[in-house]
Amino acid sequence: MPASEQVNHKEEKDKQKMKVIVIVVVAIAVVFGVLLILYCISKRTNFREKLENNVMIDQNIEGQSEDMEVTFFTLATVATATNNFSSNNKLGQGGFGLVYKGTLVDGKEIAVKRLSQSSGQGLNEFKNEVILIAKLQHRNLVRLLGYCIEGDEKILIYEYMLNGSLDSFIFDQTRAEVLGWSMRFNIIHGIARGLLYLHEDSRLRIIHRDLKASNVLLDSKMIPKISDFGMARIVGGDQTEGNTRRVVGTYGYMAPEYAINGIFSVKSDVFSFGILLLEIISGKKNRAWFHPDHGLSLVEHAWKLWKEGRPLELIDTCLEDAGIQSKIIRCLHISFLCLQQHHDDRPNMSSVVMLLHSEGSLPEPKEVGFFVGKKSPSSSKNQPSSVNEITNTVLEAR
């Protein structure tokens, strides 16, 4: 082939190669551009939906609590109060997320409950807790000061409780010594009064559904205040019970009819109170304690001792004063009445409050409910079972 034709042929091949390269580059750029546009649209849509949800909930809360002392806090205000959610300010942690101590610019101390994205408490539960607590005013219920909903953040701001939660005292051998019987009885009575208000005395009839030691907070004077209303349910008029497929709460405190069949009522709260009363008397946690010899749970072991006429063996070693034993045994008796297997056999909270302060005879308890969710196998070598405090809301509860 002549040299001139070889040159032309080579130029033609180079041009074709360049065209292919340009076409490939343009195609890649177009595909990348389309994907980028779709990604931006998706992000914008998600952001808009999240913003609209937050605005709707914010408006809903404002609409129902405009006549109440509930304040909207900006995220910047909350971050400043908690030193940007510093670990040094952390008060505790649960399945819902973290709780921090904060100080507002006016010097007022607050407790900040920052819900985690993995928490079982979603937007509905968040709104539920804000609206419910805003409408409740009682010395034995924790007071909600405000809320924050911004971006992914869902935050509740409470009055600060100097002494933390009840479980940090009764389940700690050292701190438990601070709680003599007089103080424990006052705590029992305060919790009972708080529940009575929820069930009968407030303008709403409310079933808490998650009463437990960690949800009872203690102020500077050791006055108990019931907290965490994210799982609470309002029942109207004369209604005293309901049914749900979505069982929420804490195994070890849940009444058998609720844990198994989803039937909740004021009497399921009474059952939880009975467990709490038993824990305050014994200093042992129902979910985490099993007798080393026969593997019975706290409720089963307590019932066994009661039937054998040995109730004093259950009492916390901090409460061995012989002068108060009869009062403690009376409270133990009331606990068993609250723990009856059938909810119709349990007293209501007005009766419980009356029984706590009277000295008359008490009815004999029938068989108590033993449901604790997970049981340790009977063995002479039983070890306390591990406890998962994380909230799950459908098949297994916290």
Rank of each mutant, 00 (worst) to 15 (best):
K225Y: 01
K267L: 15
P224G: 06
R245I: 10
P256I: 07
V247M: 08
F273N: 06
S220F: 12
D228T: 07
G242C: 00
F229A: 04
K267D: 00
E241C: 08
E257T: 01
M254E: 08
S272D: 11
V270L: 05
L278M: 13
G230D: 08
E241A: 14
V248R: 09
S220C: 03
L278V: 06
N261L: 02
D269F: 08
N261Y: 15
Y251D: 07
V266E: 14
M254H: 00
M254R: 00
Q239G: 01
S272V: 07
P256W: 11
Y251A: 00
P256D: 14
S272I: 03
L277G: 03
D228A: 04
G262N: 08
G274V: 12
E279Y: 07
R246V: 13
F264L: 10
N261W: 13
G237Y: 01
G230W: 09
G274E: 06
G252M: 12
K221N: 15
G236T: 05
K267Q: 14
L276E: 10
K225M: 15
G249N: 04
D238E: 13
F229Y: 04
P256H: 10
I226V: 15
M254S: 05
I223G: 10
S265D: 12
K267R: 08
G249E: 12
M222Q: 11
A259P: 01
F264Q: 05
D238M: 05
Y251F: 15
G262L: 09
V248Y: 13
V235D: 03
G249M: 04
V235F: 09
Y258S: 06
D269Q: 10
Y251T: 01
D269W: 11
S220M: 10
D228L: 10
F264W: 07
A232I: 01
R246T: 11
F264M: 10
